[in-house]
Structures are given as structure tokens and as C-alpha cells.
Amino acid sequence: MRVPFTKMHGLGNDFVVLDARTQELPALERSRVAAISDRQTGIGCDQLIVLEPSEDADFRMRIYNQDGGEVEACGNASRAVAILHGSDARIETAGGILSVSPAAGGASVQMDEPRFGWNDIPLAYAMDTLAMPVGWDMLDDPGAVNVGNPHVVFFVDNTDTIPLDRLGPEIENDPLFPNRVNVNVATVESRKRIRLRVWERGAGLTRACGTGACATAIHAMRRKLVDSPVTVALPGGELVIEWREGTSIRMTGPATESFRGSFEWDDYA
């Protein structure tokens, strides 16, 4: 079975997109997702994206991390898919329905309202998610936000000095987070700018994470550290995040198509 794909990226966070709206695909096992995502022996990507028909929106987007696990949301992939679709659309995801609007060089994504309850993240037990009384090594006093998927956010003096490759997997898999968690380490540079690095659950260090930028910006706004809209600078580039309490989140930034190709389904069994 020959399957076409589109390789895309948003700020260097890259995706292999499969369109199952017109060509039905077999079920995706974790091992096949991991094989396709492998950068040495597969096509290579941070996330594998599958587009499917939807009864509740224009189409459905399923998101798989490199390890084969399916996750609820991906802001960068949402912008990339908006470019691929080519017009305004409502997209069903496991984290809710998103509205996307392509623009010159990128897209805007209107996401659901963030959730802050300890059981919405979820956490293993009740605590205040605005100032969590926990810590790991030099990282402490975090906040937690669910923006379609779970994030924990730490503010530090210099995000570049944090060994996120070591602390990221430790925090991601801590029993405090039953569904694991995305780990954000940020430096507030001004009321209008944040610098951010992200360890994504199931994917590791990535050049950019759209939902991480949203979660970090929102947590900074809740702590009165920045104003909306705020620019979040990641290693791969910048995103602009807008949010007011009691409203949905708007994320705007670039995305692009890299190339197209096809592969034999059974080559990645």
C-alpha cells in the first residue's frame, strides 16, 4: 500500500502529515508510528499527524509523538495543518475543537479556554496550580495549565542554563502527573517577551512547542508578569499569544511545508 505524506514544520517542530480523509489507512500501532518518526531509518519527525473525517468539525486531527503515544493537542501542528488545508477550518482533536485561519507565512489558532483545576491537569492530588509547593533540583515553585494537554511551567533567571535534557524526563514521568506532563522552563525578559525551552512528553527537547508557548504565556499572565499579547521566543522562532481570563487562547505564528513524498506502509511495520 503506497501512502503519500507531507513533511511540514512550525518553527522547526516538524511533522509527517498523513491525509486519511480520502484514503483510508489501517490502524496505527505504536511501533509503526515510532518507525516512521525515526530520523535515522524512517522519514523523521517530532510528531506524526493523521487527518480524518469528522462529524463535529471540518475534519479531525490525530497527533502521535515519536514514541507512538497519542496526545491531545499540538499548536504548531495545528498551524501547519491550517496551511495545508488552505482555508479557515474547525478541527476536532482529542483536546477539543480548534478554529484555524491561515495567513501569509503562517496561521492563527483559536484554542479552547485553559483549565487550571488540579484534577484538570491532572495531578495526583489536590494543590494550587498557580503556585505548586514542589520542586526538582534547581526547579521549584511551578504552575500547571491544561491547554488541551498538560503543562508544568517554571520561571528561571536564564533558561539556557537549565539541564532540561536531564530534568525534563524526570519531571515528565514523576508520579505527580498521572498522564505525564510537558515541561516548560521560561525567562521573562519584559512585559511583552518571554524566552522558553520545552521538554515535550514522548518527544523530548523540541525547537518549538505551540501549546507550551500558550501554557507559559498564560501562567505568566496569571502571575502578573506579562501583558497580553505577549511574544514567546523559542529556539526555533517566535509565537504571539493572546489571552484574557475567561476567554479562549489565540496563538499566531509561522508554519511551512518542507516537501512531499510517499512510502510503502509495510516498510515501517
Rank of each mutant, 00 (worst) to 15 (best):
E29P: 00
I36F: 13
Q47G: 07
P53V: 00
E29S: 15
T41I: 00
Q40D: 10
A57Y: 05
D46N: 12
L51P: 04
Q66D: 07
I63M: 06
I36N: 03
E55C: 06
G68Q: 11
Y64F: 15
I43W: 03
T41C: 01
V50N: 09
D67P: 02
Q66F: 02
G44P: 09
G69Q: 14
E52V: 01
G68H: 13
E29K: 14
D56G: 00
R62Q: 12
G42M: 08
M61K: 07
D46A: 05
D38Y: 03
G44K: 08
I43K: 02
V33P: 01
I63F: 06
P53M: 07
V71H: 12
A73G: 00
Q47L: 09
I49H: 12
D38Q: 10
A57C: 04
V33C: 10
R39H: 12
I49N: 12
V50S: 03
E52I: 01
S54M: 05
F59L: 05
Q40I: 00
E52D: 11
Q47K: 02
A34E: 11
M61G: 07
D56H: 12
F59P: 06
D58Y: 05
D58C: 07
C45Q: 03
F59W: 13
I63D: 03
R60I: 01
D46W: 07
A34F: 07
L48S: 02
C74W: 03
S31H: 15
A35K: 08
C74L: 12
D56N: 11
A27I: 03
V71Q: 13
C74D: 08
A27T: 04
Q40M: 02
V50E: 08
S54F: 03
I36K: 06
A34N: 10
L51F: 07
A57K: 05
V50C: 14
C74F: 06
D38L: 09
R39F: 02
E70Y: 07
S54R: 06
I63A: 12
G68Y: 12
G42W: 01
L28G: 07
Y64D: 09
D67S: 13
M61N: 08
T41P: 00
R32D: 06
G68A: 13
R60G: 07
D38T: 03
Y64M: 13
T41S: 13
M61W: 10
S37P: 05
V50F: 10
Q47H: 05
A34T: 10
Q40A: 10
A27M: 07
I43M: 11
I49F: 04
V33Q: 06
E72H: 10
A27K: 05
Y64H: 15
G68C: 09
L51H: 04
Q40F: 04
R39E: 04
D67V: 13
E29V: 06
D56F: 09
D38H: 11
D56K: 15
V71M: 10
G42D: 02
N65T: 11
